[in-house]
Design a protein around this nucleic acid. Structure first.
Length: 107
DNA sequence: AACATGACCATTA
DNA sequence: GTAATGGCCATGT
């Protein structure tokens, strides 16, 4: 069941520094799964309770992705603000300011 | 096996 | 700025 892919995804998410955010597509690429952003979201959804900073992963628009059913979206924003990530009036994060930018493509 | 759904993304108009 | 389209692929019915 391709659990190793999930493991790679979690490993990358764990590397996101505090106060930074990353996009699903970015995580997918860093995890060696280009164009599989969707799987990243799926992996995080199946995460449940684990020591992974899932709240630092947002979509390419800089917004917090809405779950099918009301989920911890509010909590996610709270956790990010608590780390110093700012949201604008439209509820978007300034990616130019908070996006995680690993150097040399790896870190 | 077919079909639908989902914490997505890039391109094009 | 919005809207439509195609791609990607694990899961459940």
């Amino acid at each position: 069941m391709s659990a190793s892919s999930y493991a790679r995804i979690y490993a990358v998410v764990r590397r996101i520094p505090k106060g930074r955010v990353a996009t699903y597509g970015q995580i997918a690429e860093l995890a060696g799964l280009p164009r599989q952003a969707r799987q990243v979201g799926y992996a995080l959804a199946a995460l449940g309770d684990a020591r992974v900073p899932w709240h630092r992963v947002i979509n390419a628009r800089g917004e917090i992705s809405l779950r099918s059913r009301s989920g911890p979206e509010q909590l996610q924003r709270l956790l990010l603000e608590r780390e110093g990530v700012a949201f604008d009036a439209k509820g978007r994060v300034a990616l130019a300011r908070h996006l995680w930018q690993p150097r040399g493509g790896r870190r």
